[in-house]
Amino acid sequence: MAQAILHRIASGDKTAVQDCLKFYGGLVWSLARKMSPNTDDAEDAVQEIFIDIWKNAERFDESQSSETTFIAMIARRRLIDRLRYSNRRISASSLEDVVAEPANNSNEDLQICVEAKEAAQALKTLRPEQRQVLQLSIVQGLSHQEISDATGMPLGTVKTHARRGLLQVREFLGLGNSNTEKEVSR
């Protein structure tokens, strides 16, 4: 089996950078376009993300996740940081539409890695309120307060649904450990 691109980057293989761009450039760019206010900002974000990827390549553990999910995690972190810094929020006028039709990629053939498919399956096992909160917050990018305002759920309830839902999906993906499993079932 071919060596993971991130492992090759960690070992200083410059050709792996080209492979990384080729395989994951579209993913990172598409995420940045969706989570950035404009194209210029997306381009700056993508450059920062790839530097983050090179810096963090040695932390990649293929027994824990696929490269796709690891890179998406790094991309999200950077994009969220940039959004927080710019204090950008989805306009209130769009909230009703977002809550009415949360994004749901029902075609599993389109899901790009095994964890994405498993996460989709895990979401189906959650309580509807938990699933709604996770979709609105992670997929749509709404803050907990915005979800509370849009759905009428108390803020504390939104946080509880987010916490329990996320932990349950984590267990479904096999990312939890035995010492923390009890929290999920509470």
Partner: peptide, 16 residues
Amino acid sequence: TLALTAAAIKLSAFTP
């Protein structure tokens, strides 16, 4: 692990 979980959820409804 929670960041990876959130990334997986994001990818579950996302196609480049």
